[in-house]
Simulated assay, not measured.
Amino acid sequence: MAFTLGLLRRRCRLWGRKRGLAVLMVAMVGTALAATYLRHLAQQRGVKEQPPCTVTQEQRRGLYLLLAAVSALLTRLSITHFLCFDSLWGAVHESGPLPWDPHAHLCALNEKVSRHEEAELLRAFRRRGLALEYSSAEGQYTIRNSSSALGTFEAPTVRVVLFEEDERVQMLRRVGWRRRLLPPDCDAHPSLQCFPPNLAASPLPIRPFGPLSLPAPREDIDLLKFHYPETWWRPLQPHC
């Protein structure tokens, strides 16, 4: 009797293992079939699979054309502008955009921008086939190509962030109504994104940015220290 019970227990354990293995195999097959089916649907819909943090050559070419047009127009309008934020980091470390970033950042002096009526700016950009959108909360223009057609890929943009000098602290601080509510204390309020006016004093140096040559701050590393006070000495990590 003991032998029979032991044999039954071994058979039950063996059957349980086989059943667990079978369930696992079914799940794996099901997952593979589901992935194949999703790829098939994507191909039928014309959706291109793109690895994360990848910028296509088409996106990169579009960014260079857009950035060149924006910088030329800002120069014609006598608006002081220069590479900043992630684009400045890319210019310093990559001599161009960060490998994973399809967009670009410029900073501009609000004093020069405010000399132009909003309607004048809109017309100037529209005549060059560019769409201009302003966020009064963030103090930032977002510029894109009106006729950009990159299929399923994200179209490049140029973000122009506005700064103006606050004489109370003798620093340039970012505009936008969200920040106007804050007291002029750059150390207590990092979101003001302050930096010294001398970094944006004309004439500005020119720095390579891929095939382009664009204005840059007078001391690029110093501006990066203000942009990224806690991490400026470390390689910038992808945020895509």
Rank of each mutant, 00 (worst) to 15 (best):
E49M: 07
L150W: 00
L7M: 09
H81R: 09
A72Y: 07
W177T: 14
L24H: 10
R115S: 07
R45W: 14
A119I: 14
V70P: 01
L38W: 05
V175H: 05
S213Q: 13
T231Y: 01
V55R: 04
C84H: 15
I221K: 03
L224R: 00
W89F: 15
E94S: 09
P97C: 05
P211H: 08
G210R: 02
T56C: 03
G30M: 12
P102S: 06
Y228V: 03
W233N: 05
H81L: 01
H93P: 09
C53K: 08
V55W: 02
W232V: 04
K18G: 10
G210F: 04
L63Y: 03
L65M: 10
W15N: 01
L88Y: 02
A2M: 10
A34C: 05
P51Q: 08
L121E: 06
L214C: 04
A131M: 06
L130F: 02
R234G: 02
P184D: 02
L106N: 02
H103S: 05
W89M: 11
R168L: 06
A188V: 05
E165H: 11
A34K: 04
A32Q: 06
W100M: 02
S147K: 13
R19K: 11
P229W: 08
A131R: 03
W233R: 00
L122F: 14
K225Q: 15
S136I: 12
V161C: 01
Q43L: 08
F226P: 00
V161W: 00
A201C: 03
V113C: 12
E219G: 08
E167G: 15
P235N: 12
T75D: 11
R17C: 03
F226A: 06
L83E: 02
L38S: 04
G139E: 02
G20N: 12
G6V: 12
V55Y: 04
A42C: 10
R174A: 10
W15R: 14
L162F: 10
V175Y: 01
T54W: 04
C84V: 06
G96S: 11
F153T: 15
E120N: 07
L172V: 09
A69S: 15
A149Q: 10
S146Q: 15
K18S: 06
G16S: 12
A22G: 00
F125S: 02
L7F: 13
L33T: 14
L224H: 01
R144C: 14
L224W: 01
D86Q: 09
C12Y: 11
L121P: 00
D187K: 14
R173C: 11
E154T: 15
Q44S: 08
V23D: 10
P217E: 04
P99F: 10
P156Q: 10
S202W: 05
R13P: 09
R180C: 15
S95G: 05
K225N: 11
N198H: 13
M171S: 09
S136L: 14
P215Y: 01
I143S: 01
F163K: 05
Q43A: 08
Y37K: 07
P190I: 05
H103W: 07
P208Y: 01
R17I: 09
L132E: 03
T56H: 04
P183N: 01
R173D: 03
